[in-house]
């Protein structure tokens, strides 16, 4: 992967250049091994279509989403204000995020603190690129006829009404798209939202991610398409818990797109 040159905002600025779009990687995309693959795939896609982008690198910091959902408004606002300072310092106008939580926080909650940006999620970018004919789902792995089900992340779907972009991205694959029992605005959470990712679940009869994977099994999906690094972790754990690793894969839409385009 050393061939892929991923510039930071600081590097561009030093060369007197600017980026058209900032790629906000997010904490999971930066540190989680599984999510790192998705991060690199997003970079490959950006590279492939020739968008001038950059990341913040070590200047990026948690958006504050988990703190805010958990009720720690102080910590959230500290994070948000520090991030806004960095973003405004680079005069960032447009941001693409790999994580629906980052997407929602920067798009909806940073404006309250003076940070105004045009924010899109990577599935929206991929859909735009497909619409513009820049991505063709050709030259790579074929998904033709494979049963794919899309899991709506709460902060992309219900949280922000983005239901179609990820599905359109999958439609270009000529795959067999199936819906789970709960989908779109009725989508079932993976169980990680609201800072649940960072704690043990409360006592219950079942784990939420297992319930969700059971729905995917019921839909006889071969691939669960995810669009959120937290969902990715939860769904993979669910697949493991159901011992379905041989029959079922969890892939991010960015990974599927990169594979289909042979990137």
């Amino acid at each position: 992967m050393t061939t892929l040159k991923i510039p930071t905002m600081a590097e561009l600025m030093a060369n007197g250049e600017t980026a058209d779009i900032l790629f906000w990687v997010g904490c999971a995309g930066s540190y989680d091994e599984r999510a790192q693959h998705i991060t690199r795939d997003i970079c490959k896609i950006l590279h492939h279509v020739g968008i001038k982008y950059a990341i913040l690198g070590t200047e990026e910091s948690c958006t504050g989403d988990p703190a805010k959902r958990a009720g720690n408004e102080f910590l959230f606002q500290m994070q948000a204000m520090a991030n806004i300072q960095v973003l405004d310092g680079y005069e960032v106008k447009k941001i693409v995020t790999a994580c629906p939580h980052c997407f929602n926080t920067i798009k909806n909650e940073y404006p309250d603190l003076g940070g105004h940006y045009e924010v899109i999620h990577h599935t929206q970018l991929i859909q735009q690129l497909i619409d513009e004919g820049k991505l063709k789902a050709a030259g790579g792995e074929s998904f033709k006829g494979r049963r794919i089900t899309y899991h709506d992340p709460c902060y992309l779907g219900r949280g922000n009404g983005v239901y179609e972009a990820p599905r359109k991205a999958l439609e270009s694959l000529d795959a067999q798209l199936v819906e789970m029992k709960h989908c779109r605005s009725n989508g079932l959470c993976c169980g990680a939202g609201g800072a649940q990712m960072f704690k043990e679940p409360e006592k219950g009869t079942k784990d939420i991610n297992v319930e969700r994977v059971e729905e995917a099994i019921e839909a006889r999906a071969e691939i669960i398409a995810a669009a959120c690094p937290f969902c990715m972790t939860m769904l993979r754990d669910g697949v493991k818990a159901k011992e379905k690793e041989q029959e079922m894969e969890v892939l991010d839409i960015a990974e599927i797109t990169a594979r289909a385009n042979g990137l």
Binding site: M1, I6, S30, T39, T58, Q79, A195, F198
Partner: peptide, 30 residues
């Protein structure tokens, strides 16, 4: 466990215990 997460966000800028300086290491992990 949420207090631990808060501490990580505050000190490392991420909800997990990773160093801020390693944030862009994924570029080289491929």
């Amino acid at each position: 466990s949420l207090n631990t997460m808060f501490g990580n966000v505050e000190n490392n800028g991420a909800p997990w215990k990773y160093a801020q300086a390693d944030r862009a290491d994924w570029k080289n992990n491929g």
